[in-house]
């Protein structure tokens, strides 16, 4: 069964990479979000899920039942989901700001911090 999940997660990573490499700023941001989800899934998968029993200590019991799921990956992923959402919001606002200030949504034409390779500002490739 884990095979199916492994395949699904791998596909999510591929889709995320493809989206993130797009020149469309919006697709790029969505791609980063998808990659974030994939990372969460990988962490969860690494915890070897399989049990249906949530990691809650039953009333009367002193410690967690052996059949319960591993709580650690859950704790890691839970905070990661919320952080990922905050960062997605941040990226969306940043993207909107860039679109407004540059007048386009081409991520390869964002030259505020660095000019293109053809710019004379960069050192010449060959000796003059």
């Amino acid at each position: 069964m884990s095979l199916i999940m492994m395949l699904a997660i791998s596909l999510v990573v591929s889709a995320g990479v493809m989206l993130a490499l797009s020149r469309d700023l919006f697709r790029l941001i969505v791609g980063l979000a998808v990659l974030g989800s994939a990372a969460n899934l990988i962490v969860f998968m690494a915890g070897r899920p399989g049990s249906l029993v949530p990691p809650l200590i039953e009333a009367g019991a002193g410690e967690l039942a052996a059949a319960a799921a591993d709580p650690l990956p859950q704790a890691l992923v839970l905070t990661a989901i919320v952080i990922g959402f905050a960062l997605l919001c941040f990226a969306l606002v940043l993207g909107a700001w860039l679109v407004r200030h540059n007048g386009h949504d081409d991520s390869d034409r964002l030259q505020a911090s660095e000019p293109l390779a053809s710019d004379p500002l960069k050192p010449p490739l060959m000796d003059e």
Binding site: F44, P54, A69, V77, F85, A96, R100
Partner: peptide, 29 residues
């Protein structure tokens, strides 16, 4: 997979995403 907390958090986040996205999309043209 025994992670109700996670499931719930993820559902909430995805729902909130719809709200955010609907409002932010027009700004991208």
């Amino acid at each position: 997979a025994g992670a109700p907390d996670l499931a719930f958090t993820q559902f909430m986040v995805e729902t909130a995403l719809v709200v955010v996205a609907a409002s932010v999309l027009p700004r991208y043209g």
